[in-house]
């Protein structure tokens, strides 16, 4: 093993800059204009590497979300948390009258 991760037969065309811009918008990360080219290149390399998976036959294989073979525990419906607003808001960037402040939200 340790086959170097070479790009397999491409199943997707290399990722385009506008797609990375779209991802950056979804992820709410600003990318400066002068960096977008390099960021796209790096991500294209990573996507080309992970594209190896496309060659694997996974027909009939169940997706595995969690390695733990267990089921969700249920919590009794009891109020256990009291008011800790002062403690939490002491570390908040901007608060007023107990509210977190953000620039005007438009619905």
């Amino acid at each position: 093993m340790t086959t170097p991760p070479t790009a397999p037969p491409a199943t997707h065309a290399a990722v385009q800059q506008d797609e990375i811009e779209k991802m950056a918008e979804l992820a709410r990360i600003r990318i400066a204009d002068h960096q977008i080219g390099e960021v796209t290149e790096r991500i294209a390399d990573i996507l080309a590497m992970v594209d190896q998976l496309q060659a694997v036959d996974t027909a009939g294989v169940e997706a595995m979300a969690n390695p733990l073979d267990a089921v969700q525990r249920l919590r009794p419906d009891i109020v256990t948390e009291g008011d800790q607003r002062e403690v939490f808001q002491a570390i908040a960037p901007a608060v007023e009258n107990g509210l977190y402040l953000v620039p005007k939200v438009i619905d």
Binding site: V15, M23, L26, L47, V50, L53, V56, T58, V61, E62
Partner: peptide, 21 residues
């Protein structure tokens, strides 16, 4: 974000979860 985005979920995320198994 790319791996989870519409149109790529099956090819990337779901595929990876299958290979994980």
């Amino acid at each position: 974000t790319y791996a989870l985005s519409a149109g790529y979920y099956d090819a990337y995320y779901k595929k990876a979860q299958q290979v994980r198994r």
